[in-house]
Simulated assay, not measured.
Amino acid sequence: MAPATSKASTPKAKAAPTAGVKKAVRPAKKGKKGKASVAMTKMQAYFKENRSKYEKLEFKEQQKKLGEDWKKSSENPKNQA
C-alpha cells in the first residue's frame, strides 16, 4: 500500500502581484459617472429633508411627489446650469 499524502504538506506559491500586464487606472470621479453620483447624493439628501411634507402618503406616492419637487428644485444640479 502507498503512504497517504496530506494537502498541507506542499503549499503552492502565489504569483507575484507585479507579474503580468498592469491595467491602466482611471482617475477617480472624472466624467459622467462622477457628476451623476454627486447629483444622486444631493437628490437623496433633498428627499430625506423634505419627506415630512408628504408623510401621510404611501412611500411610492411620496417618492413620486418628491421627484416632481426635485425636478423643479434650485438644489438640482441640472437646474443650476
Rank of each mutant, 00 (worst) to 15 (best):
56 K>G: 10
3 P>S: 14
61 E>M: 09
29 K>E: 08
6 S>A: 10
40 M>E: 14
81 A>R: 12
29 K>W: 00
50 N>I: 04
73 S>L: 00
15 A>Y: 07
35 K>G: 11
60 K>T: 14
77 P>A: 07
45 A>V: 08
81 A>F: 04
61 E>D: 15
20 G>H: 06
23 K>E: 12
64 K>M: 06
24 A>K: 15
11 P>R: 01
14 K>S: 13
29 K>P: 00
41 T>E: 14
71 K>A: 14
2 A>W: 05
70 W>I: 04
78 K>C: 02
26 R>L: 12
59 F>H: 09
31 G>M: 04
18 T>G: 07
2 A>M: 07
4 A>W: 02
56 K>C: 05
76 N>G: 03
73 S>V: 00
75 E>D: 15
6 S>W: 02
50 N>M: 03
76 N>V: 02
58 E>T: 10
6 S>D: 11
51 R>S: 09
20 G>W: 03
7 K>Q: 12
73 S>Y: 03
21 V>M: 08
12 K>D: 06
70 W>N: 01
3 P>G: 11
41 T>R: 14
63 Q>C: 14
30 K>S: 12
37 S>N: 13
69 D>T: 04
7 K>P: 02
47 F>V: 05
40 M>C: 02
62 Q>G: 04
72 K>H: 08
52 S>H: 14
37 S>I: 10
70 W>P: 05
52 S>D: 15
75 E>W: 03
